[in-house]
Amino acid sequence: MSEPILKLEGIETDIGRYHILSGVDLEMPRGQVTMLLGRNGVGKTTTLRSVIGHWRAKSGRILFDGQDITRMPTPAIARMGLGFVPEDMGIFSDLTVEENMTLAAASGPLSPKRRDRIFAAFPPLATFWRAPAGTLSGGQKQMLSIARAMAEERRLYLIDEPTKGLAPAIVSTMAAALRELKREGASILLVEQNFAVARALGDRAAVMEGGRIVWTGAMAELATDAKLQSRLLGLSVEGV
């Protein structure tokens, strides 16, 4: 097996006085979708933010494609080819959709081919291309947020709860776009509370509990084992 695209070794992260991550170990195989699952407040978002360097891990090592990025500044990590889609979407609402996309392609102009692909995945972005991003609906903002991560060739995507609070129709648009990314062989680390989406997209799953990873395995295994789900995720009815 080739080297993992992302490897976390004993990551511990504090936010202020709070000890959030207490030794996260994770190996993410290349070209697969790894689901990061767990109840609220177990440290999923903090794990993603520790990778991108928003929160600094106080101990442990983060290897991105074999390179140690633990102490690297955030912009340098991003420029190595890491696309991050935060939970709050973080779109620039004063700028137009087009400007948001132009900024996201930090290393050069947005290629027409990529733009067309993004338009195909998210048609509303074509419609509102020149509108201020702040005027988009919640679902459209989420589309823009993911589209921004797709503005360039990335080696790894970190995506935090892309379907949170979205209408079912938009959830399926989102899932389709992620599936398209996956089909192209992208490596994605995805935090997702919607288990149906997680099951449909995930190759592998890592489940967090109390600031560390307590179970890793094939998504299929977790998806078919209701007992395991209920133990790890507190899901009483399969598919909720």
Binding site: I52, H54, P73, T74, P75, A76, A78, R79, F84, P86, G90, F92, S93, D94, L95, E99, T102, L103, A104, A106, S107, R148
Partner: peptide, 24 residues
């Protein structure tokens, strides 16, 4: 200019601008 757009992006969400790869 593109430089000005980056400034506006930083004003709105500096962490996000960093995560895209701009040295704030």
């Amino acid at each position: 200019s593109p430089f000005g757009r980056v400034l506006q992006a930083i004003r709105e969400n500096d962490f996000r601008a960093e995560a895209i790869g701009y040295r704030v």
